[in-house]
Design a protein around this nucleic acid. Structure first.
Length: 213
DNA sequence: GTATCGATTAGC
DNA sequence: CTAATCGATACA
């Protein structure tokens, strides 16, 4: 069992409780915006603010990996909430999801973009000489910057090396943009992508066509 | 067994 | 716009 190492400069609070994730995936996705994503890797800690997410749910939405039912790859999506779902795609990229909703309901939130806050050197070593705002812009970049691979699939987000802080996101003066998911051919055009409006680390794709609420 | 496509990215 | 690159999936 992994034990998170405390540190003197640790002002991050603790991991969100499992109940946070045991809700409708869209509600979880919105609640994740602005929160701190932490990876305590053997090489060191990385911290980033989540600025863009997408929700995936159920076995009927053809955009969801789980739409054909439970398979070895999607099993974790059907499992208990508060775990990671990391998949490999296009033969070269990994993507990080956070599993939501009660066990038995396949649902997860894809982390599409984040703003690096700590562990910048570590991220630069993993990503190469990329400007800070581009380190975690795009789901593949998020996973790469954090050093996540399929070995990080199914991790417990409540008591593990990968977790979301329970510190509340800044409430004041933040707008949440809403739009359809990106990169989906058989799109189900529903407002399942959420992002912090105007944040430099949000992926630019189709932003102009999205509503702002 | 073969064929196709992908919750993507970097580069031209 | 396309190449990269391989696991999951569909089908013979």
């Amino acid at each position: 069992m992994w034990v998170r190492r405390p540190s003197a400069t640790d002002g991050l609070g603790g991991p969100l409780p499992r109940a946070f994730y045991r809700r409708h995936v869209v509600r979880v996705a919105r609640a994740l915006l602005g929160r701190l994503l932490v990876h305590d890797a053997p090489e060191g800690r990385s911290v980033a603010r989540i600025v863009e997410v997408e929700a995936y749910r159920g076995t009927r939405d053809p955009a969801s990996h789980a739409w054909r039912g439970e398979t070895p790859r999607t099993r974790v999506m059907f499992g208990p909430p508060g775990r990671s779902y990391v998949y490999f795609t296009y033969g070269m990229h990994h993507c990080l999801n956070l599993v939501a909703e009660p066990e038995g309901i396949a649902a997860a939130v894809l982390v599409r973009a984040a703003a690096p806050l700590d562990g910048l050197e570590l991220m630069r070593a993993r990503r190469g000489g990329v400007p800070p705002d581009r380190l975690m812009r795009g789901p593949g970049c998020v996973a790469q910057a954090l050093g996540l691979t399929r070995g990080h699939d199914g991790l417990d987000l409540v008591a593990g090396p990968l977790w979301i802080s329970d510190l509340p996101p800044a409430r004041g003066r933040r707008r949440i943009g809403v739009g359809p998911r990106i990169g989906i051919r058989r799109a189900v055009e529903r407002p399942w992508r959420f992002f912090l409006v105007g944040h430099p680390c949000v992926s630019a794709a189709r932003t102009s066509s999205n509503q702002v609420i």
